[in-house]
Design a binder for these strands. Structure first.
Lengths: 206, 206
DNA sequence: AAAACATGTGAGCTATTGCTCATAATAATC
DNA sequence: GATTATTATGAGCAATAGCTCACATGTTTT
């Protein structure tokens, strides 16, 4: 499996409805296959087969395997209802509610297909372009959260930058783990504990 | 790359010092190669080359590629200075110190080679036997921590089981992330924030 | 030093992968 | 209906992977 190409753009743009449908079938199949087999074992042939499309067709819309994963990730990011920083309530006494909204958002966003998410996040760092996309997005999010931490009256943390990174990562990754594993406790219990941890952390000592 | 074999045992046991040395050279090289290239791109030929050993020798001590990663993981677990539950101070007022010891333990344990750890944890679930080893170990740890959470007078959490899982995972995975990424803040800052989060969480509301 | 055992070697087999390309089928345009 | 543009096909190529095996080289035992 040679890495061959660096491009992420398709080699031909769909001009007919038929083509657009094929493209979508491929992406849907890819999501399925990647989630089930992981990135390495999710072969392009398997994806094509699952999409009921010839391998040739697949390579008319995606220049290489990486591009398929990249497209799925972009779709996920775009579709994501990530709470925008402006909507956050900064008035005192609403901290726990805010955190809960944030956590619930993460949970909802991952219930689609946690296994695919896992693949995207853990096995994604393949192409430079893709890695940069993720990185830029992450930096932006961290800055937003950091801003909230600083401005909120109820929040007291030592290092807002580090705190922002830790919180974002912790909530996201714990949600992954919980949703991916066979659940032994109800989601509510998990949510409560995660919310409690973050809230108490932000509220500061004593 | 066919998965071929399920065994994790070597096909021949070393009986001379020379052999034991070869085996060790292979493992050291494997740690290097896996850390640098990841599991998929860390080919057995590359490992053999790096160890200055022929590919044939490699396959005399390891039945397949999986077995090499498995051995590295077992080594890591065995060598680990994981705090035993009995040594934990349960007297009041020592919570933060206990948590800090726990966090620092995680940090120390990972400073060897965070990239290898990443590979072992994220790409390991290949063979059934290996997965089970990890699982069993994790269950044991969780039970230990849960026990401490229940018995410590200063700790107040809603669901001890979930809390134990979350704490273990959060500390471990955050440490990974921090150690693997290019560090923008000193380790102390990171440690402080992580300790703060866990401590405040355990201490309970208010 | 010869026989028996242990260890080391690497060319190359088999399987699989990502991906190409000549060609066929279908739709749009004239 | 003929021409052209678009889309679909899949056999098969080049690269690479994990791994075997017939054999060479050491070490120990007799």
């Amino acid at each position: 499996m040679p890495p061959t190409d660096r491009r992420l753009e398709p080699r031909r743009k769909p001009r007919q409805v038929r083509a657009e449908l094929t493209r979508e079938r491929i992406l849907t199949a890819a999501a399925h296959v990647f989630a089930q087999h992981g990135y390495a074992a999710g072969t392009t042939n398997r994806i094509a087969e699952h999409a009921h499309v010839s391998i040739g067709s697949l390579y008319q819309y995606f220049p290489n395997k990486d591009a398929i994963l990249a497209e799925l990730l972009v779709q996920h990011i775009d579709r994501g209802t990530w709470t925008s920083a402006d909507d956050v309530d900064l008035s005192p006494g609403t901290l726990e509610a805010t955190v809960r909204a944030f956590v619930r958002d993460a949970i909802d966003n991952h219930s689609d297909d946690p296994r695919l998410l896992r693949v995207m996040i853990e096995e994604a760092p393949v192409s430079r372009a893709l890695h940069d996309t993720i990185d830029r997005h992450e930096k932006l999010r961290t800055a937003q959260v950091r801003d909230i931490l600083v401005r909120h009256p109820d929040i007291h943390v030592g290092d807002p930058d580090t705190a922002a990174q830790i919180i974002l990562f912790t909530v996201e990754i714990n949600t992954h783990r919980f949703m991916a594993a066979p659940q032994t406790v109800p989601v509510e219990t998990f949510e409560n504990e995660l919310v409690a941890m973050v809230t108490r952390y932000l509220r500061g000592g004593q």
